[in-house]
Design a binder for these strands. Structure first.
Length: 113
DNA sequence: TTTATGACCCAAC
DNA sequence: CGTTGGGCCATAA
């Protein structure tokens, strides 16, 4: 099997985001803390996400509850559109309520469920 | 090995 | 309340 992995940490980040159900969003700091790394690393992992990935990177936003102003500029608009399609409600300017849509990852023990 | 960058976060004024 | 600066970790060259 594949002995060469791009980065075990990346796989973890992608796995967590993949577990996020539609209609909910998470923050970089949350994932970073769960994985033991800083939010910067999480953002970097998303930046390395290839097109057509099964990872709903759009559900990942910053702690401020806002979409990340990607280097592209239009990417943030696309993310807003995607999140809106999920059923989220944006505020006056790409503001979302983490208290309502903030998704909490399941505990390692509860993961068994 | 070191340098430079990055879709961040937090604290302070 | 809005803005500014510094720090942190990981990747690629």
């Amino acid at each position: 099997m594949a002995h060469k992995s791009p980065s075990p940490l990346y796989a973890q980040i992608y796995a967590l985001i993949r577990q996020v159900p539609p209609g909910y969003v998470t923050t970089y700091g949350q994932i970073g803390k769960l994985l033991g790394c800083t939010a910067r690393t999480v953002g970097f992992a998303l930046s390395a996400l290839p097109s057509g990935s099964d990872v709903p990177w759009q559900r990942v936003i910053n702690s401020q509850g806002r979409v990340s102003p990607r280097t592209d500029g239009e990417g943030n608009l696309l993310q807003k559109d995607l999140l809106e399609a999920e059923g989220l409600c944006f505020d006056c300017n790409l503001w979302v309520d983490l208290a309502v849509y903030g998704w909490s990852f399941p505990e390692r023990d509860d993961l068994l469920l």
